[in-house]
Design a protein around this nucleic acid. Structure first.
Lengths: 104, 104
DNA sequence: TTGACTTATGCCGAAAAGGGCATAAACTCT
DNA sequence: AGAGTTTATGCCCTTTTCGGCATAAGTCAA
């Protein structure tokens, strides 16, 4: 949201905030969630770029299609470990994995 | 190990390899382990730089001293999630976290 | 050396995360 | 529209990971 829009909204009586403040997250929780969301997106984008289905990725990482769907959805019931395994199964280097966190 | 040393050893009949090949790890497994080791080291170094004990870090991240010891030991029974929580509790940014992976 | 402090290891029961499976929902192509 | 494919959800049971706790082992200063 740009500054002008924000000022216009605030003038109109709205309270403009971000998800972290709105949900009352600590800085640590916020970072963890941002990292998870970034990983989820990265997995989906990379998988699509490779032109493979969730089922194929699942096989490559010895998991299931259902799990991959949950990974990409950023479901809280999947661990960062599993997300990273997905990234590696897609051929991601440690270098590129690092960038995913940095872009979060 | 530098090239000269390696050649000397091979001439003497030794087989020089790395842990990945020796243990027969896949590329994915190797990357995951390297990432975990790098995280473990990063937690310990950062904690020491902050001059706090394992117990203090444990409290900050709502875990236990025993867990922190296992994190720093790179124990397979601790998840990457927990390691990352430790890094964040130590004040690490997403930017810096990314670098930890890249240096692995 | 002994006593405080810190770190390492092991065990337990509880909670989280995983795979397997079924099936619903969404999307594609003819 | 309907069949085929891909993705999303939910449930169950098993495995993994967790905190809590006790205690061993290591460190260091008095």
């Amino acid at each position: 949201m740009d500054k002008k829009t924000r000022q216009r909204l605030e003038k109109a009586g709205f309270v403009v905030t971000d998800t972290k403040d709105f949900l009352g997250l600590t800085e640590e929780e916020d970072r963890l969630i941002r990292a998870r969301v970034a990983l989820a997106q990265a997995v989906r984008e990379l998988r699509k770029r490779r032109h493979i289905t969730q089922a194929q990725l699942a096989k490559a990482m010895r998991s299931t299609q259902a799990r991959v769907a949950k990974i990409e959805a950023g479901s809280p019931e999947v661990s960062v470990d599993l997300m990273i395994r997905a990234m590696f199964a897609l051929g991601t280097s440690l270098e590129d994995l690092g960038e995913v966190f940095q872009s979060a």
